[in-house]
């Protein structure tokens, strides 16, 4: 799991760098953040479909069946 440790550290580092760059955003400045294209998932029904397709063909996505997608394994 060495690679896992490395990835975790890299992610933490990246997050740290990004978070340091945080500026306080006042409520009236949040216009852009509210736009639909800025939603964390702008196309939820598309993402649902992609996740379903990837999950039937890849090991990482299909790792757990909490989505309850049956085997759907074709």
């Amino acid at each position: 799991m060495k690679l896992a440790g490395l990835v975790a550290k890299l992610l933490l580092l990246t997050m740290g760098v990004l978070l340091i760059g945080c500026v306080p955003v006042q409520p009236w400045e949040r216009g852009n953040l509210a736009k639909p294209q800025m939603a964390l998932d702008p196309n939820p029904s598309q993402s649902a479909l992609w996740t379903h397709n990837y999950g039937s063909r890849e090991a990482a996505a299909g790792g757990n069946a909490a989505q309850g997608g049956g085997c759907g394994c074709y």
């Binding site: 639909p36 964390l40 939820p44 649902a48 996740t51 999950g55």
Partner: peptide, 20 residues
Amino acid sequence: GIPLQALTAAALLLPGLLSP
């Protein structure tokens, strides 16, 4: 598009995870 809910939705959508 209201992002508040989109957050929760997105969190649930992350692969390998609780899906939509």
